[in-house]
């Protein structure tokens, strides 16, 4: 490097440090509160195993995190955004506008959601999304008309199902799981049964129809559980007819008490969730700002550590906490080490 180049770069660095308050030496992460526990577990282990300082992890929600991520490039913007949804076109536009061009998308694993009931209870072993909608939706389609849900037993609308009273314990609205339950099950069932079409025909616009589709009946037939899965399990345990919504990992640890139902004929398993054939799941992501790699010390090491087999693999601490490990983890690891942007 020539002397002039060296001086210019030294000056540039000096100017840069002068404008920003202090040089940042830690990785900053923000975003989804679903990913937060996983990210904080990794950050803690990272701090223990490397000479870099422990990354700073904040929550705030997927959208807020991506918005901060797209604010621009530089030490006063975050390096990694956690997200429980894929990045949207609008996020990418905002990023491009602010000069954040190269984004590395990293899928850390899946959050799988299952329907399970008491092991000695009625034979709830196979559901379709439409069954769940017919049983739990606030308004359903009966004989071509949209009416308040009249069904009291599962057999009322599908003779293959047991003649047992309908009772379901669903995640409360503050849970991220609730959104998946609404989008992937209720909305799907609403479309499958034709209720959505009927609502739109009756003059509702699409958004209003979607909102009506995801409404549950309440009234003691659906019970919102705001606590964790242990509470749902306790409720299912004391109600033979009850159906509970659980995370896959939780169900797998309680197979002595629960039996799981297939959705659309697919059994929820790590493989089916990972391949996407089991419909009620969502991938979890984080996004890395490529421009920060090499500038912020430890950023790449942190990303690599996050997706390493020891952490994100099937026996790692993330899986212990409930993440469905990604079977294509190896591809993700290569992606991170090659810094392959979207």
């Amino acid at each position: 490097m020539s002397l002039t180049k060296l001086t210019t770069s030294a000056l540039a660095i000096a100017a840069l440090t002068a404008t920003t308050a202090v040089a940042r030496d830690n990785v900053q992460v923000a975003g989804s509160s679903t990913v937060l526990p996983y990210a904080s577990i990794v950050a803690e282990a990272f701090g223990e195993n490397f000479d870099f300082p422990t990354p700073v992890v904040e929550s705030g929600g997927s959208s807020a995190g991506l918005k901060r991520f797209c604010e621009g490039v530089g030490e006063n913007t975050i390096d990694i955004a956690n997200s429980s949804r894929p990045i949207r076109e609008s996020d990418i536009e905002l990023c491009t506008e602010n000069g954040v061009n190269d984004i590395i998308e990293v899928r850390i694993g899946y959050d799988g959601i299952v329907f399970a009931s008491q092991i000695d209870g009625p034979e709830f072993t196979a559901f379709e999304a439409s069954d769940i909608f017919n049983a739990l939706g606030a308004k359903v389609l009966v004989d071509g008309a949209i009416v308040d849900n009249p069904h009291t037993q599962w057999a009322d609308f599908n003779s293959d199902l047991p003649a047992a009273d309908i009772l379901a314990f669903v995640p409360g609205t503050k849970h991220g799981t609730r959104e998946v339950f609404e989008d992937k099950v209720l909305l799907q069932g609403c479309e499958d049964t034709g209720a959505m079409q009927a609502m739109m025909d009756s003059g509702m616009d699409e958004d209003a129809a979607e909102d009506a589709c995801i409404e549950v009946r309440g009234n003691g037939i659906t019970v919102d559980i705001d606590g964790d899965y242990t509470e749902t399990l306790a409720r299912v345990d004391s109600n033979p007819n009850g159906i509970g919504v659980f995370g896959l990992a939780f169900y797998e640890n309680n197979t002595n008490k629960l039996k799981v139902a297939t959705i659309g004929g697919v059994e929820p398993k790590t493989e089916t969730i990972a391949s996407g054939t089991y419909p009620v799941s969502r991938p979890l992501f984080f996004f890395i700002k490529k421009a920060h790699i090499g500038v912020i010390p430890g950023l790449k090491e942190f990303a690599e550590f996050f997706v390493s087999d020891e952490i994100a693999g099937p026996d790692g601490p993330l899986s212990d906490y409930g993440l469905v490990s990604d079977p294509e983890l190896e591809a993700t690891q290569t992606k991170v080490s090659d810094e392959e942007a979207m």
């Binding site: 509160s33 937060l36 950050a43 700073v56 992890v57 904040e58 929550s59 705030g60």
Partner: peptide
Amino acid sequence: MVGYIATN
């Protein structure tokens, strides 16, 4: 200052 994990 809430929703931040103070580890450092």
